[in-house]
Design a protein around this nucleic acid. Structure first.
Length: 493
RNA sequence: GCGGGAAUAGUGUAGUGGUUAUCACAGGGGCUUCCCAAGCCCUUAACCCGGGUUCGAAUCCCGGUUUCCGCACCA
């Protein structure tokens, strides 16, 4: 429920998503399965459009893209550190059923040596006289908890990848060769990651299987100036000492808040993507990881967070992985993953949780009109459907005329809607609710003079007397001169 | 995982042991209107799963699942 005063933004988003087909819980006819969600028809289009924006923003700076496997041999994840770090040792109080991470129990009892194996953990616990912090009961029987999904393939142990990144690192040698030995090299990958979450919550926000968009940026040397941030967006930066700064990212580098220009540049790329998919800048900040929360591979990390229900939710992380991964793979595989002799590339990793980015976009764009009807203010670039064609009524040849125009519009804008049912106002409302930016109405003027009316979603304004030939003039409907009359309210701008 | 609520058409809900399972919105068809979810008529569509108690269970009990709220977890 939440407190009475708080407006819950998540619940209306989930309700809309179920009703209109953005996403819904997986396997619902079998009672559901927690932590898994399917994208419905609208969500699937939205997802591919947001991925495309992401790809474009990296392609514009010369990125190359690969697509590696989900199944990953144990050796790779041993090298990367995940096989060790992704197994938690835990302990449950037999009396009050409280669960603890073993290392927390050892530390809170003044111990410092964290056991490396389950055998060692058993020995430590049986000698340690550790008590449950809650009820004082003596704790016993530590066990392992796997955060990765394990798969058996013959005699091999494999895992479903916890991140897409390793697929890029293991291909580094081939990629560098493909790139004719040149750095910097930016490699991106779209795909699924899998984590055995103990208690998935909040629908698409925390899942066992999730969509990621990751980039590994391989940099020449340590100077950190291969890429220079150029934007003047004033951004809220919450640093590791919980100090807030409002400044653009190049100033943040000069003020030594962000560690390097390279790091700041990719923070900027991710920030602009969030704006591009329609997240309100007022909802955005970067938060720097404290030393004690950095992942095992990371030297410095800034999360992009979105404010939902007045709490900050991580949607992306821009980590400085240094030479960690390549060094590890050099050591474990014995392969030459150097460049220019003995140099190891430095890596910046902008990594985006796409499901969360999509949810943030929906939430940020959900608006209500004064009459209570809701609409989605998606930028036209990511709106699932961009145009709906609506005959004012079905009689007098309007339906046929509308169908004719619709089939021509589909040629230039394949994702368009045709809707003939119900009153015209109802049909506008239907399109508003799924965020279609433009409706084209076919009326008696169309029959007489071949002109249509274009109606814009956010303003509900109309332009009448748009010639059909103007409408069809440009392959990209969004760039059509017919829309200029909408001025600055146009959602595509 | 633990504790506590909850689970009924697509969505939101009513229903305290016997109902033809309520209502609204949404959806489909028709009439009417003809530029912003109007009106009228018709219509589709639901008791989470499995056991038990009972002559009889949507309703009571047990187990499971899902979900929400706390706690823990979130590399």
């Amino acid at each position: 429920m939440g407190s009475v005063n708080r407006v819950d933004e998540l619940e209306p988003m989930i309700e809309l998503s179920k009703r209109r087909g953005f996403f819904w819980p997986s396997f619902s006819i079998y009672g559901g399965f927690s932590g898994l969600n399917d994208y419905g028809p609208l969500g699937t289009i939205l997802k591919s459009r947001i991925y495309l924006e992401w790809k474009n923003s990296f392609a514009r700076i010369g990125a190359i893209e690969i697509d590696s496997t989900d199944l990953t041999p144990e050796a790779v994840l041993k090298a990367s550190g995940h096989a060790d770090k992704f197994i938690d040792m835990a302990i449950t109080c037999s009396k009050c059923k409280s669960r603890y991470k073993l290392e927390n129990i050892i530390e809170s009892n003044g111990g410092s040596k964290i056991p490396e194996s389950i055998e060692e953990a058993r020995a430590t616990v049986s000698n340690g006289n550790f008590k449950c912090p809650k009820c004082g009961n003596l704790l016993a029987d530590p066990y392992e908890f796997h955060l990765m999904f394990e798969i058996r393939s013959g005699n091999e142990t494999m895992y479903l990848r916890p991140e897409t990144a390793q697929g890029i690192f293991v291909n580094f040698k081939l990629l560098l060769n493909y790139n004719r030995g040149k750095l910097p090299m930016i490699v991106i990958q779209q795909g699924k990651g899998y984590r055995n979450e103990i208690s998935p919550r909040q629908g698409v926000i925390r899942q066992k299987e999730f969509n990621m968009g990751e980039a590994e940026v391989f940099l020449d040397g340590q100077d950190g100036n291969s890429f220079i941030p150029g934007g003047d967006d004033i951004i809220l930066l919450h640093d590791m000492n919980s100090q807030d700064h409002r400044m653009d990212l190049s100033s943040a580098v000069q003020s030594r808040i962000v560690g390097s220009n390279d790091h700041a540049f990719f923070m900027e790329i991710v920030y602009r993507l969030a704006l591009k998919v329609g997240v309100d800048p007022e909802r955005l900040r970067f938060r720097q990881h404290r030393k004690d929360e950095l992942a095992h591979y990371s030297r410095e990390c800034w999360d992009l967070e979105v404010k939902i229900n007045d709490t900050w939710l991580e949607v992306a992380g821009i980590a400085d992985r240094g030479t960690y991964d390549l060094s590890r793979h050099i050591k474990e595989s014995g392969e030459n993953l150097y460049y220019e002799g003995q140099k190891i590339a430095n890596v910046i990793e902008p990594s985006i949780g796409m499901d969360r980015m999509i949810a943030a976009s929906i939430i940020s764009n959900m608006k209500k009109r004064e009459n209570g009807y809701s609409y989605l203010t998606f930028p036209a670039d990511i709106a699932p459907y961009r145009v709906a064609v609506l005959p004012l009524q079905k009689k007098d040849g309007l339906l046929e005329k509308a169908r004719d125009i619709f089939s021509k519009i589909q040629e230039i804008e394949p994702y368009s809607v045709f809707d003939e049912s119900g009153a015209i106002g109802r049909r506008y409302a239907r399109q508003d609710e799924i965020g279609t930016p433009y409706c084209i109405t076919i009326d008696y003027e169309t029959l007489e003079r071949d002109v249509v009316t274009i109606r814009e979603r956010n303003s509900t304004l109309q332009i009448r007397d748009v010639k059909v030939e103007t409408l069809l003039e440009f392959p990209l409907f969004l760039k059509n001169p017919a829309l200029k009359k909408f001025g600055s309210e146009q959602p595509g701008q």
